[in-house]
Amino acid sequence: MVDSPAEPPFMRVGPGIAASPVVLSVPHAGRAYSPALLKASRLPVAKLESLEDRLVDRLIWRAVAEGSTALVAQTPRAEIDLNRDEREVDAAMVSPPPAAGTLLASARTRGGLGLVPSRISGSGAIWLQRMTGVELRRRIDEVHRPYHAALARLLEEARGRFGVAVLLDCHSMPSRHGEADSPDIVFGDRHGASIAPNFLAVAVEAAESAGFRTERNTPYAGGYITARHGRPDRNIHALQLEIDRSVYLGPDLRSPGSGFEKTARMIAAVAGALARKALEPAQDIAAE
């Protein structure tokens, strides 16, 4: 199957020139399911949609209206996962299989959630047949690499203008509200590797002030996007934000719920707090 997308794979939203040091990334909310992709699937579109971070692209509107720039995927996660290394491929789903030395084995690929998802929990295998190596390369060359190149440009643009850039990588997570003390949101900073502690602290404070229970790095410590783009030593910081879907979606977990606007305000508050911290004057260090 070779499937050229009818929709652009992603879009930039927000000001044409960076008005804030904060850049938002929404890699998993794409809903542009092409006819060829649906024809290749043994599962109905409703099952493929379960891979989405449902409507997270709509949650960011307040943050964008207040000056943040965002890069929003339109290509669905079922086609290619932008939060995976391009080498995280299940060789068994590609014909002919890629050379073993070109792949990166991970728990995600073993679980069917690699660069191209191969299975959905409770539903089984996704695809009717193995994809061609040509199609895999097309998805990498036309979607994955351009997305990350565009995100890197936005961060460099922000850093060039403000001296620092902060990436807020926005996701949703399955509901855990049946569990005791379950968080509403989880911040992931690769256990301190992707963002300076003072930025993480203001993000947590903003979310908790907005009425959300937070956790750090458990069970989500940040994925490929935060690992690739977070470079605190270069004044480019990255933080993953995971939001419990039951917090902002209705009982069907598909449509906006009563908490939708509150969650949008929280994201804007976190982006605003990160921007204010980034724009603080650098502290002079007194000579000793």
Score class of each variant (00 low, 15 high):
Tyr147Asp: 00
Tyr147Lys: 03
His148Cys: 14
Ala149Cys: 06
Ala150Ile: 01
Ala152Phe: 04
Arg153Cys: 11
Leu154Ile: 13
Leu155Ser: 12
Glu156Tyr: 13
Glu156Lys: 15
Glu156Arg: 13
Ala158Leu: 06
Arg159Ala: 06
Arg159Leu: 03
Arg159Trp: 03
Arg159Ile: 09
Arg161Lys: 13
Phe162Pro: 10
Gly163Arg: 10
Leu167Lys: 05
Leu167Asp: 06
Leu168Ser: 04
Leu168Asp: 03
His171Val: 08
Pro174Met: 04
Ser175Val: 03
Gly178Met: 07
Gly178Ile: 02
Asp181Phe: 06
Asp181Ser: 03
Ser182Tyr: 14
Ser182Gly: 05
Asp184Met: 09
Asp184Trp: 13
Asp184Thr: 05
Val186Gln: 02
Phe187Gln: 04
Gly188Asn: 04
Arg190Met: 01
Ser194Phe: 06
Ile195Asn: 07
Ala196Thr: 00
Phe199Arg: 14
Leu200Thr: 08
Val202Ala: 05
Val202Asn: 14
Ala203Leu: 05
Ala203Pro: 05
Val204Lys: 14
Ala206Trp: 03
Glu208Ala: 11
Ser209Lys: 15
Ala210Val: 02
Ala210Cys: 15
Ala210Asp: 06
Phe212Val: 06
Glu215Trp: 15
Glu215Ser: 10
Arg216Phe: 06
Arg216Asp: 01
Asn217His: 09
Pro219Ser: 09
Pro219Val: 01
Tyr220Asn: 10
Ala221Gln: 04
Gly222Asp: 00
Gly223His: 01
Gly223Pro: 04
Tyr224Ser: 12
Ile225Cys: 11
Ile225Glu: 01
Thr226Ser: 13
Thr226Cys: 11
Ala227Leu: 08
His229Ile: 04
Arg231Glu: 07
Pro232Phe: 04
Pro232Val: 09
Arg234Pro: 13
Asn235Met: 12
Ala238Asp: 14
Leu241Ile: 00
Ile243Lys: 08
Ser246Trp: 00
Tyr248Leu: 09
Gly250Ser: 09
Pro251His: 01
Asp252Phe: 09
Leu253Ala: 01
Pro256Val: 13
Pro256Leu: 03
Pro256Cys: 11
Ser258Lys: 11
Ser258Glu: 03
Gly259Trp: 07
Gly259Ala: 03
Phe260Val: 00
